[in-house]
């Protein structure tokens, strides 16, 4: 895991000139720092990276990098990201967004990217609140939480993002947090390097609307490193067991890493293209298909 001193790119090469609009103290400042560092460690030139997001505070993140960014519409980072990866599998494709973007309005997409196993890294900055619209209930808000749309307390159970993606069979599932920047950078790096769909839930506190217990101090108090618990990341059922504690404990590290990664959709596409293009007529002759003799 030692960093390569002759690395061609440094973290600052991935940092754009745009000034973040995030509130000072926001967890996302650390996340983007973690992403710069992960990208530098991997060393892929910024122009070969496509970074896609939806809508939300955290979805501003592609603009703060020097990669090709696409700040799309609410909940649709993943559909667009998969189109990019399938259209050009040579690109490194990252997707990011918040918990509302990923698990509410866009919640239907994750399952399908997972089952297709498209080689995309999906980073969710989970803060249990809608920040951009000023503090409404989010899909990961705890039951009973009071917000401006739940003044008498939420009646809903939260989504468990970790169990959700584990259940659908994601090949790489991890959790990180700004409480440990080094750990976060390492996890993001590992997620990007993983061949296949990789998911990292990042507990990134909202300094403006987040509850006290979900700020850095509170998170540190409930955080536990999965490796120090002796968790074996090849054990999916054990990962699911640990993931049950989402919301009570903050487990940091890799929950699950498929020891035998399945072939990716983008790789299979290439094989199919290669096989079928061998005897293909030129596209100028495609209408010959309609000749009836």
């Amino acid at each position: 895991m030692s960093a390569n001193a002759t690395c061609e790119f440094q973290a600052k090469d991935y940092k754009s000139d745009l000034k973040p609009i995030w509130c000072p103290g926001c967890g996302d400042y650390s996340v983007v720092q973690g992403i710069y560092r992960a990208l530098a460690a991997i060393g892929r030139p910024p122009h070969e990276v496509a970074f896609i997001s939806g809508i939300g505070c955290s979805s501003r993140i592609p603009g703060y990098t020097t990669a090709y960014g696409f700040n799309t519409v609410h909940g649709r980072a993943l559909p667009i990201a998969q189109g990019i990866k399938l259209a050009n599998p040579d690109l490194m494709v990252l997707a990011a967004g918040g918990d509302g973007d990923g698990f509410s309005i866009g919640g239907g997409h994750i399952a399908h990217l997972i089952r297709r196993n498209i080689d995309i890294t999906y980073l969710v900055m989970d803060n249990q609140i809608y920040g951009l619209t000023k503090g409404q209930l989010s899909p990961t808000s705890q039951k009973g939480r009071t917000t401006c749309t739940s003044p008498y307390g939420s009646l809903e159970n939260p989504v468990n993002p970790l169990l959700y993606v584990l259940a659908y069979g994601a090949g790489f599932v991890a959790q990180a947090s700004p409480t440990d920047l080094a750990g976060m950078a390492a996890i993001i790096e590992e997620a990007i390097r993983f061949p296949g769909f990789a998911f990292v839930n990042i507990q990134s506190p909202c300094v403006t609307y987040g509850e006290e217990a979900q700020q850095i101090k509170g998170l540190k108090a409930i955080s536990e490193n999965l490796s120090s618990l002796g968790h074996n990341p090849a054990d999916r059922l054990a990962a699911m067991d640990l993931a049950q504690h989402y919301g009570e404990k903050l487990h940091l590290g890799v929950f699950y890493r498929n020891p035998e990664p399945a072939p990716t959709y983008d790789a299979l596409i290439r094989e199919r293209q290669a096989a079928l293009s061998k005897d293909a007529p030129p596209k100028e002759r495609i209408l010959d298909l309609f000749i009836k003799k």
């Binding site: 496509a50 649709r76 559909p79 998969q82 189109g83 293209q273 293009s277």
Partner: peptide, 30 residues
């Protein structure tokens, strides 16, 4: 047929993802 010409097709999970993937592919230069 599209595979023969180096292309790809995705039967997406819904209408929005279908056009979304196409928007992504266009962004990717295709």
């Amino acid at each position: 047929h599209v595979w023969k010409y180096g292309g790809a097709v995705l039967q997406a999970e819904d209408e929005i993802a279908g056009i979304g993937a196409a928007v992504g592919a266009s962004f990717a230069g295709r």
